[in-house]
Amino acid sequence: MSYPVFFNQVRKITVHDPLAQLLGANSDGNIEYSYTDAVKLAGHSCPTVAGAYLMTLKALESLYKGQTPQRGGVKVKFRDGLDEGVAGVIANIVSLLTGCAAEGGFKGLGGNYVRRDLLMFNAPLNDQVLFQRMDTGATVSVSYHPEIVPLEPSVMGLLRKILAGQAQAGEKEEFANGWQDRVRRILEQIDNPELVVCS
């Protein structure tokens, strides 16, 4: 199985999951996630998947400021409804990285390690997503602006040919390379405050 090289060049996210430690999933409860993990969950790599990963990374860095984030210790609210736009895709990746879940999530053990009802939609927010630490109440709001890294116009032309069943094999490969080139350029802007705006 081969992925583009840049997938593993993206800054990784390490979290501490006390439930994983308690249940023996690993000895210290620390879990490292990469952009490749987000791609595996989504089944594809695109600007939305990249944005979900980056928004979560930047939110956790802001909330924990040099400390290891606590998986299961963050509540997340979305401005959009679950079925609006790409909110559901983003929420799946946020859930992977933070442990938060909607009503179908883990119910906990003796009132501890509860993961359900930590992921909400249709919240009255100005920004896209709000992350909140459950121990301190600290919050950070984030919005993602992939438009600052535009797609080459020729790539959309190739996509139209593919969807119309008119593309040759070489054109399909050219499209895939062009599509992932934009994702790469987005991820290279990881620390650009205009890409993921935190407030």
Rank of each mutant, 00 (worst) to 15 (best):
162 I>N: 08
193 P>L: 02
170 G>D: 10
187 L>K: 05
174 E>A: 15
179 W>E: 11
179 W>P: 02
170 G>M: 05
162 I>H: 12
189 Q>H: 15
180 Q>D: 09
178 G>D: 08
189 Q>P: 06
172 K>I: 15
180 Q>I: 01
180 Q>P: 03
184 R>T: 00
163 L>C: 07
178 G>H: 04
179 W>H: 15
171 E>N: 10
193 P>K: 01
184 R>Y: 01
168 Q>H: 05
194 E>R: 15
180 Q>Y: 11
163 L>M: 11
179 W>Q: 06
166 Q>F: 06
195 L>C: 03
195 L>V: 06
166 Q>W: 02
188 E>K: 00
194 E>A: 15
174 E>I: 00
183 V>Y: 10
170 G>S: 06
167 A>L: 01
170 G>N: 12
181 D>K: 05
174 E>C: 06
184 R>E: 12
179 W>I: 01
177 N>Y: 07
163 L>G: 08
181 D>H: 06
193 P>D: 14
163 L>V: 12
162 I>P: 14
183 V>L: 07
164 A>R: 14
195 L>R: 09
190 I>C: 04
174 E>D: 10
181 D>Q: 13
185 R>G: 05
174 E>Q: 13
191 D>M: 03
193 P>I: 01
185 R>P: 01
178 G>K: 00
173 E>H: 05
176 A>Q: 12
186 I>G: 07
183 V>A: 12
174 E>V: 03
168 Q>I: 02
191 D>S: 14
176 A>Y: 03
191 D>F: 09
167 A>C: 12
196 V>T: 03
175 F>I: 04
185 R>D: 10
